[in-house]
Design a protein around this nucleic acid. Structure first.
Lengths: 183, 183
DNA sequence: ACGGTAGGAGAACGCTCGTTCTCGCGTCAA
DNA sequence: TTGACGCGAGAACGAGCGTTCTCCTACCGT
């Protein structure tokens, strides 16, 4: 097995386990068992657990935002694209194994202890907000809407995670529609 | 020192440390050091750490909702009371040592592992939502608004926690005002 | 005064887990 | 063929921590 595939398998296992059970309750040995990558190899690829955590969050960030953008781009109308964000969230909430936003959860778990994790969470959230800002600008809407839509999305993610109920997505979409209609 | 004050001091220390540094990174020994309550006494009062965590969340829940309600009640107008919720959130966000919502953070840290913590988080959020529902009903507004306002509040809490910026409170208040005006 | 009990300080125990080390095997170049 | 090397399996090490135990002191009723 070459380094690249070992890295991929390690990250696949890390993502499944960290997201599903939390970061602190997953040991490096669990990663080894789930990935088939030996401890020695794991520590060659990621000299410490924290770096595996960072790599997990980074790879997930790229994929998460990519999937969102791909979904939203299927909608041609600029204003409807904003609502498509909430449609996508709702679909995500309904997925098997959904356990809330990985970054919000990671922040709750490690934000007080790891600067690097906090940095990654902030970067991810800033990127998502920037993405929303772009959609708002493309629709010719005032930038003040961005923060409001962003808060709705965050509220929906955290609520869907805690209650396990995808209804939060629909409520957020409704609220977003009201805000768009009001301005 | 009698049992009641020992319990109070233990809970005071638990609240400061658990909220400020996360639950898992605070040991029972830290609680002892910060509270002055011996380990033996701690384990008499709370037979396991998880029960101290539960007691911490429960006491904080009562106080948090009490303070919110006391603040909101100072506003006589029913509709403005809803906005007062967001004013209160913003003041909270600006407080020294604010580190986000204790329940959201606890859920991120322990939600995947502790049924009881998950239960407490859900109960707290349900109670907050119910409180909002009461304000909405008192103002003669449609109940559909409740969920939307709730999501704004949750989004503001999680965002203020992650960014450390109280601006989220003002944005949420603005969004709430729009939603109230639209209906 | 004195035996008994509660409580404090902190050592001890056992487990988990991040990280490193050992050992043995297979591979490959010379 | 052989010796160096890479790698996997898993033991080992050391720290942290939840929980319990030991020992000693102080106070209580009689």
């Amino acid at each position: 097995m070459d380094s690249a595939t070992a890295r991929d398998q390690a990250l696949d296992a890390a993502e499944t386990l960290f997201y599903g059970r939390g970061i602190q309750s997953v040991g490096m040995d669990d990663i080894r068992g789930a990935s088939g990558v030996s401890l020695k190899r794991l520590y060659q690829l990621f000299p410490a657990k924290e770096q595996l955590v960072e790599a997990y969050l980074e790879r997930r960030d790229v994929r998460w935002r990519g999937e969102l953008a791909a979904y939203v781009e299927r909608e041609p109308d600029a204003e409807r694209r904003i609502l498509a964000v909430f449609d996508w969230l709702q679909e995500w909430f309904g997925e098997e194994g959904f356990r809330g936003c990985a970054w919000i959860n990671s922040y709750g778990e490690l934000g007080a202890r790891s600067e690097r994790v906090t940095g990654q969470v902030r970067a991810h959230k800033a990127a998502f907000r920037e993405y929303l800002a772009g959609l708002v600008a493309d629709a010719g809407l005032p930038d003040a809407l961005t923060g409001q839509l962003y808060l709705l999305a965050e509220g929906a993610m955290v609520t869907a995670g805690i209650t396990g109920d995808a209804r939060a997505g629909a409520e957020a979409r409704e609220a977003a529609r009201s805000l768009l209609a009001a301005r």
